[in-house]
Design a protein around this nucleic acid. Structure first.
Length: 396
RNA sequence: GGGGGUGUGGUGGAGUGGUCAAUCACAACAGACUGUAAAUCUGUCGGCCUUUGGCCUACGUAGGUUCGAAUCCUACCGCCCCCA
């Protein structure tokens, strides 16, 4: 079966749209959050667990699975799947390490960096050459596509270079042009018709490059479009605005490696159909629990007796608190089940609001509750309503 | 009763004359996490201040030796072990 994407409803007042992505392994309602399963497993979760979170789509990684063949068999669950091409590792194992940055630049961080001589990755016209932990490996557009065809995901990506947010314009431009040439080679190498191949828009933090990249790729017969590369904090909306209008309306758009709760709204409104991020899973293992009332670090004493229940497992936050403190391996799983379900649920609510026209109202009330405006200066931390009487009497 | 050992910060446990407010671990507190190098990492952790520095109080208690003591001596107190 050939995967197919259909836009079903367009939102008035933004570029958001509802859609249906049909794949050989199932149907995805968009906008959707994609759960990261780098090694063809969602860390700490069993295949049955993944189903319990109502995850619609997962993304695995070619770099980590380069010797494997059937990613769905490894996952153990029949769920639509993407594989990333390995392009992100060009960044995460190269520039990210050397620049000591993530792909989303922090506020107040220096904004320029240098060069391309990374200690672990060398990039040539042919491809990327890794030297990690004493082992050498090369990935070319052709080898990435061959691996992804062997892995058999429903959606695959061209091999690209994810640039650093600290790369200057000149480097970013040269890299982008090379990524475009790699995109063409990826397209030529791709043979399977039951997989959608997405091109990847680059251009980093430079809006003119972003627009140029989108236009270039839009002219090529990709099954969909990824939006990759780096972003400046608070520039997400503008960057997406300079990309998405140039992409074909009838093709799915995937925002790679984003994002946070506020990013989700920005992306959906910009016209993004799917997005993936490690936030729900990684932060769960780090004891950060997402709730409608905000993010909570359940290791803190304030949650020792919290009786609120986690999604999926129905365990109390207090129990999770104790498991994390005891370094009990079960903590990560309960937290991951919860966070993944919460992110999926959030997207379910966004889709429902887009469908019935209440999106604007929904977003306002959701964000007001999730991240209330900070009052005053210092003691702006939200109350956690679990220990109201424990502070003793106050003088005023 | 005799002999031996030991007493350090919230806890465990280093340190046996100066560079010690005291290694380290745990606990506590705070922070980070955006196509997973990460179930991880960072910071604070006696008190006060004009905080890349200064001052004060501290290594069971009380004295002593010394220019200088958590470190040596004496006594006392507590705990542990062995012999009667």
């Amino acid at each position: 079966m050939r995967p197919r994407f259909t836009v079903t409803t367009k939102h008035r007042g933004s570029r958001a749209r509802l859609g249906v992505l049909r794949t050989p392994h199932g149907t995805v309602r968009t906008p959707a959050y994609v759960i990261v399963a780098t090694h063809a497993e969602v860390r700490t979760l069993t295949p049955a667990d993944i189903k319990k979170t109502k995850t619609q789509l997962v993304i695995a990684n070619t770099y980590h699975l380069w010797e494997q063949r059937d990613a769905h068999r490894m996952l153990g669950a029949r769920i639509p799947m993407m594989t990333d091409s390995g392009g992100f590792q060009v960044f995460s194992l190269g520039a990210a390490k050397d620049h000591r940055v993530g792909k989303v630049l922090k506020r107040g961080h220096r904004t320029t960096g240098t060069g391309s001589d990374y200690s672990t990755v060398a990039i040539t016209e042919d491809g990327a050459h890794f030297s990690v932990a004493g082992k050498r490996r090369s990935i070319t557009p052709e080898s990435s596509i061959a691996t992804q065809e062997r892995l058999g995901a429903d959606i695959i990506f061209v091999f690209d270079e994810c640039t650093s947010p600290l790369h200057p314009m000149r480097y970013t431009k040269n890299s982008m042009d090379r990524t475009h040439r790699w995109a063409l080679r990826s397209l030529k190498a791709h043979t399977r018709t039951d997989q959608l191949l997405y091109g990847i828009v680059q251009g980093g933090r430079f809006k003119r490059l972003r627009a140029a990249s989108a236009k270039t790729l839009a002219a090529l017969p990709f099954g969909g479009y990824g939006i990759g590369g780096s972003f400046g904090k608070d520039e997400m909306t503008e960057t997406l605005a300079s990309v998405i209008p140039h992409l074909p309306d009838d093709k799915p758009r995937h925002l790679l490696g984003i994002g946070s709760v506020s990013d989700i709204f920005a992306a959906v409104e910009a016209g993004v159909d799917t997005m993936d991020c490690v936030i729900p899973t990684r932060e769960a293992r780090h004891a950060r629990i997402y709730t409608d009332d905000g993010i909570v670090d359940v290791r803190k004493m304030a949650f020792a007796d919290d009786r609120r229940r986690l999604l999926v497992s129905r365990a109390s936050i207090g129990r999770l608190h104790r498991l994390f403190r005891a370094r009990d391996q079960r903590a990560g799983r309960l937290a991951t089940l919860h966070n993944v379900r919460w992110f999926n649920l959030t997207l379910e609510r966004i889709r429902a609001a887009l469908a019935d026209g209440s999106y604007g109202t929904f977003k306002r009330s959701f964000l007001t509750r999730f991240s209330p405006p900070r009052r005053g200066s210092s003691s702006a931390r939200r109350r956690t309503h679990t220990h109201t009487g424990s502070r003793g009497s106050r003088a005023y």
